[in-house]
């Protein structure tokens, strides 16, 4: 496609976004949808701006992001270490792998009732659920990455007189990196979802709780502001990880 055509279509894409917001404005202006359900874009923007500058929306965002990142980092560390141990040993894979595969389709949110049974409706419950739920995608991806090491590379390592640690560090880990990064990306999505649900259920401060309370009180501008912020968090984290992936995996292309 020619550059000018591309630019034109990109402009059309921006215009389409503007048209969607315009349609939203008109729909609320002429009362096509009740304002209790759909606030006007102006009032949503105002709620967003006020909440971030003078209200406590900023604190809610920080609480959710902090919870999500803390759980995700812990799960990443445990997932990568455990996954590399299981993945680089054929015996461990044969004994443990099937059990892990069986647990793969289990919804991470199903851990929440168990978390509540053990920890009550507390902050540690939410964090434990995030950690545990995020661990699975990371663990399975790491195992897969380590298992996919070309046996010939293993032989090369043996010829070069590499020990086990050297083989892991110089061959297996770089080889598994794409899988690990993909798992970390999926894990971050899971962590955000579990943070939101956990906050809603346990009444812990954060965006999940604040949008639920806004909906209960029919404060629809606050509700939509919260949803927009959650979308922004998802967008930003994905963008950062995609950039990291590009950097780290540059040697492959």
């Amino acid at each position: 496609m020619r550059l000018s055509a591309r630019l034109g279509l990109g402009l059309a894409s921006v215009l389409l976004c503007a048209a969607i917001v315009g349609g939203w404005h008109l729909a609320t202006r002429f009362g096509l949808v009740s304002r209790a359900f759909l606030p006007s874009p102006e009032r949503t923007w105002l709620a967003l701006w006020r909440g971030l500058t003078e209200g406590d929306l900023r604190r809610q965002v920080l609480a959710t992001v902090e919870r999500m990142l803390l759980g995700w980092v812990l799960a990443s560390l445990v997932g990568i270490v455990l996954g590399s141990l299981i993945g680089s040993s054929r015996r461990a894979r044969a004994w443990i792998g099937p059990s892990l595969e069986f647990l793969r389709p289990l919804p991470a949110s199903a851990l929440i009732p168990i978390g509540i049974a053990f920890f009550g409706l507390s902050q540690s419950m939410v964090l434990a659920v995030i950690c545990f739920g995020t661990l699975w995608p990371m663990l399975l991806a790491t195992i897969q990455g380590f298992a996919a090491l070309d046996p010939q590379l293993r032989d090369v390592g043996r010829m070069l007189g590499f020990g086990r640690l050297d083989t892991v560090w110089k061959f297996a880990l770089p080889n598994a990196l794409p899988d690990i990064l993909a798992g970390m990306r999926l894990g971050l999505t899971v962590a955000l979802i579990l943070s939101v649900v956990g906050e809603m259920l346990a009444g812990q401060q954060g965006l999940g709780l604040s949008i639920l309370l806004a909906a209960r009180a029919f404060r629809s501008p606050d509700l939509f502001a919260g949803v927009i912020l959650l979308g922004a968090i998802g967008y930003a984290t994905n963008l950062v990880l995609a950039q990291v992936e590009l950097r780290v995996l540059r040697w492959r292309s």
Binding site: G10, C17, V196, I211, R216, A232
Partner: peptide, 22 residues
């Protein structure tokens, strides 16, 4: 696809559970 690109990019990262209260 190119025209729909931006709206899709904006809507897709919204976690499904964020729409629960809505």
């Amino acid at each position: 696809g190119r025209v729909l690109h931006l709206p899709i990019e904006f809507l897709r990262p919204i976690p499904s559970v964020a729409l629960l209260p809505v």
